[in-house]
Design a protein around this nucleic acid. Structure first.
Lengths: 212, 212
DNA sequence: AGACTCGGATAGTTCTACTCTCCGTTCATG
DNA sequence: CATGAACGGAGAGTAGAACTATCCGAGTCT
């Protein structure tokens, strides 16, 4: 298969495919002559993965490159892959050191202790959580903070089941890719389901008879 | 307070404040003369909200404007505000009508029926869920789909508690803003906590002794 | 043989979110 | 009350991200 067919089968323009090749998201095709390459089903799969990370996962091209480099690295273990994927998904605001963020750090530390979680200081989720809580502190409302334990409980269940789902498979063989897809697309799915659950709960409050 | 002080107290540059004024994210200050305006604490609050939506929530300026218009609209009820905020948060990929998306729609419809949810056809979360599931279908893996009910159960609990937290307050008076903040920053917080829970679960699998 | 397509490289485009510059006015300080 | 800094408002300019278009000389199809 050459680039035109890869484009047709994936729905991605030839120009974009060339761009992804340049950026290292897609490995080069096998050269049959100095200026002819051919691509296989694996390239098609990879291209679809790239689009999934960009479109659905909302990663930047640079973030996707980092994640895919981890997927390609045979050395990397699942725990490290987890961290890399999380880094790419979490929009990191560079933190300001005011008293709101100090309080937020304490809230997170208390939560971690309370739940007995084992989370490193520089886990992407932890940094993001501090950011969000500091922002909420600055906004002055306390509505979300009251739900912190509800969220934590729900996510503990989710996280456990997700990690179990990955481990309960015969070792390696695409499992890093599964971790990455799980983190990125799983996050999008969770957000989507939250939206549905919220609307459902809200609709029930508005009126059980069914009007909207 | 004039713009320089607003800038100093918020940490947002004067140029950006002017930009937000132009874009309608921030209401104009009260004019004391044709070319002098003064801003109050409410403007400061609003500016912090704007930065929260943009930085932490990841909204675009256009999305934030829509959401803030809803916050300002006295007519709008909580159920509608919920929808507007969800629309702004969910990155909508324009859907392709292939058989993967047809299957995904059925999976979502089954889920909704199974859980007895009341979700409209064009709820942002529902459309996003179809997108994600169709993408997963195209990728060929089934790992995330197996967790669908785990996610749904967790989000049902979350959604119920969130809606209850909003309703269990004396009516109106900033409650639309609370809904918006809850949806946008709550989503970021959930994603962050998932990251923490995943790392914790993964660390436990790697070794209970504590190495990383 | 000749039109089409290829891979690779470079330059250009579009969009978003600012940021800069300018203008005439007003405020603040000496 | 002079004068320089700050103001509000408008328009143009900029930086970064993600493509997209053009060009080239070389291969491929019929």
């Amino acid at each position: 298969m050459r680039v035109a067919e890869l484009s047709r089968r994936s729905g991605v323009s030839v120009a974009s495919i060339k761009y992804y090749l340049r950026e290292g998201l897609l490995p080069p095709g096998e050269l049959t002559s100095p200026n002819q390459a051919h691509y296989d089903e694996e390239h098609l799969r990879r291209l679809r993965l790239v689009r999934a990370l960009l479109d659905v996962g909302g990663l930047t091209v640079a973030g996707a490159r980092d994640v895919l480099a981890t997927v390609d690295d045979e050395q990397v273990d699942l725990h490290v892959a987890l961290g890399t994927a999380q880094d790419a998904v979490m929009a990191s605001v560079q933190p300001v050191e005011d008293d709101a963020s100090v309080r937020a750090e304490k809230v997170v530390a208390d939560l971690v202790a309370r739940r007995g979680w084992r989370v490193s200081e520089n886990n992407a989720g932890r940094r993001a959580a501090v950011d969000v809580l500091a922002t909420l502190d600055r906004l002055g409302g306390d509505q979300v903070v009251g739900l912190l334990d509800v969220y934590a409980e729900a996510m503990e269940a989710v996280g456990d089941r997700e990690v179990a789902a990955v481990v309960d498979r015969d070792e390696r063989e695409g499992s890093v890719e599964r971790v990455v897809v799980g983190i990125v697309l799983g996050g999008a799915l969770i957000a989507a389901l939250r939206g549905m659950a919220q609307e459902s709960a809200s609709a029930r409050r508005v009126g059980p008879s069914g009007e909207r």
